[in-house]
Design a protein around this nucleic acid. Structure first.
Lengths: 207, 207, 207, 207
DNA sequence: CATGAATGAGGCTTCATTCAT
DNA sequence: GATGAATGAAGCCTCATTCAT
């Protein structure tokens, strides 16, 4: 019986994931308000009613997609960051390149991020989303600032650098460069990131 | 009669502006989809139908707000930039402070910007909005990069600096810092901007 | 003063007629429900509000157009009929040709007739219109049947002919032939009327 | 599963028909523009939204009613005509009586026909309806004219009769007699048709 | 568990009519 | 008298959600 339950749970979990993936695609394509629940069902190859067996509402599903997406992205980022080697500047460069390089993956879901932002700007879920964003940005800022502090301790960066501020700005820069790439195909965010980080690293350096 | 016509036209133009302002407030508060046309009418203190005497549709009104907003912001920015004096680094600092300082004004309309982004992420108006954003970013990038090139020519910045890339990144950074401030009250974007620009200017400097 | 009043009345009467004519054109073009009062004003080259100085409502105007049209058509028909000369068969033929021949004039207002019919099929004015139609048809039937009775008395038609029935049918035939011509350009109602009347006259004749 | 599908399809088809019938009643009662979609739903005993599960729009439903009605009427007429026996004159008399006799059935849907005419006189569907009318009239004309040609061949009618013209006129006469009966209760279309056909048949006869 | 038929609240938009100028 | 700006009732349609099968 426990095994049975487990099987059933596995089944549900897998199905839930299928719906999640389908929903992510449709939301990214059409936006939250532009998306019709029936479309998600069609995309997932199931009946309309089935979605409500797994999620309470369209909004609930939307937020589940959001959380799933954030968790996924966060996990990937943490893994790639923890794998970084070398000096602080080298690690920052590697991080930047990793972020900018994942563009091809990110571009498909950037529309989704825009939707999350949008949802955070309106509707009652505003607070819910804002908090999640706050958290996500904060986590990332923390990682980068600890990396910078590490550099300061190792005497790779100037001691009077405000790690928190620089981290916040850098995170923002990367985000905004991806944004510019998103709505402007001709914009090369990789070069911009590389050149800019060069300047920043020089500014951080002891000399 | 020409005078009469002029009067009428003035009247209509002014009324259109009043509706625009009311719409901007409501759209900022509730988002495009969260906004009900009746709310805009109430906010403007007029009847529902009157809006349709001045705008073809809710979407039309929304885009009109957008264009009006972009035009306004763009004009203000250009004026404040043209007024900048001093060396290139000084001008960049002044620009940064000016942007970050206008936060109190901007914060009220940032929600509106989010809405425009949102609208650009979905629906058929996507292209319309994306292009406007592209243009806006591109304009601003151009201003900042010419400022940097100016600095290079004046030997205030290193000659091997990629003005375009740095400009794109800086513009993005400011944008993203405002964004972080927008959804995180405890985040001090002014300090972050100041500290970060310090680093960047040091990185740009000849030494 | 009486002269003054007369002038004013003349002015009003003429203006009313201008509105009537404009309304007839627009109603014929777009139908009652498809017509927007503003269009009539534009067509008449006046302001929207002015119409309500001369007519109580859109429906009132519509009915006024109808009555004006019926009066006009009726008057014309009576005149042309009273001018008919010759034997009863000859007068029927002349009448038929006159009716069918006025097609080029009628075709432009047939849409209007359709609208009147339509209005009679729906809305509260149903009864109003139905009665007018009844009256119009009845008048015309009366004219034709008296013409036929005249023929019977003159021994040009068989004595056992039911004048009323034949008149009703003939009137209907002409009406329906014009209708067919109206929605089928390739249909030649003149030939059909002529050939058919030939048969009918032969059927009415003593031999 | 195929059986299941068939069941579902049957169910939908039947439901669609129920809506069609309800819509026909309401449209006949109130006209196209006078009809509110909610009324149809009430008449059909279903919810407003359900109608849109089966028809794309009010106009679509209206045209579906029209087609259904035309198909039904056409089918009935063809059947009754093919069942006619006897000489050509006898068959024409039988046809006339059959048409005039079905008045009690027709009267309830004549309002509907008026609505179709109305719809054909306005809006973009004009062409759609006009063509259907053209077709219907043309079909009927064809049937009657072949009946007449048959009579000519059998030497029951004069050889110089223009079958097409007479057919067109006869069809029109019947139509118009029903029309007169529709808006004038006191008008006896049966007698008029009988008496008139007498005259026409006499006119068609060899003597 | 899965489904899709049914629903009705709610939103955008139209337009006849009014009325201040 | 003439005008057109203003209005709000009313209608079509969408779509998230429910629920019987």
């Amino acid at each position: 019986m426990p095994e049975n339950l487990t099987h059933r749970e596995d089944y549900r979990k897998e199905k839930k994931l299928r719906i999640l993936e389908a929903a992510a695609r449709v939301f990214a394509r059409r936006g939250f308000f532009g998306t019709v629940v029936a479309d998600i069902a069609t995309e997932a190859g199931i009946g309309k009613g089935t979605i409500y067996e797994y999620f309470d509402s369209k909004e609930d599903l939307f937020f589940a997609v959001f959380e799933w997406f954030v968790r996924q992205t966060g996990a990937k980022t943490k893994i790639s960051i923890s794998a970084l080697k070398g000096s602080a500047p080298q690690r920052l460069e590697a991080l930047s390149e990793s972020l900018m390089g994942s563009w091809d993956e990110i571009r498909d879901i950037f529309s989704l991020v825009m939707e999350f932002w949008s949802a955070s700007a309106s509707s009652e879920t505003r607070e819910r989303f804002q908090q999640a964003f706050r958290q996500g940005y904060s986590d990332f800022r923390g990682i980068v600032s600890s990396l910078i502090r590490d550099g300061i301790e190792r005497r790779e960066f100037r001691p009077d650098v405000e790690a928190e501020s620089v981290a916040a700005a850098l995170v923002g820069t990367w985000d905004a460069l991806l944004l510019q790439a998103w709505f402007d195909d001709s914009f090369d965010h990789r070069i911009a990131a590389k050149e800019f980080l060069d300047v920043v690293l020089r500014g951080l350096s002891l000399q």
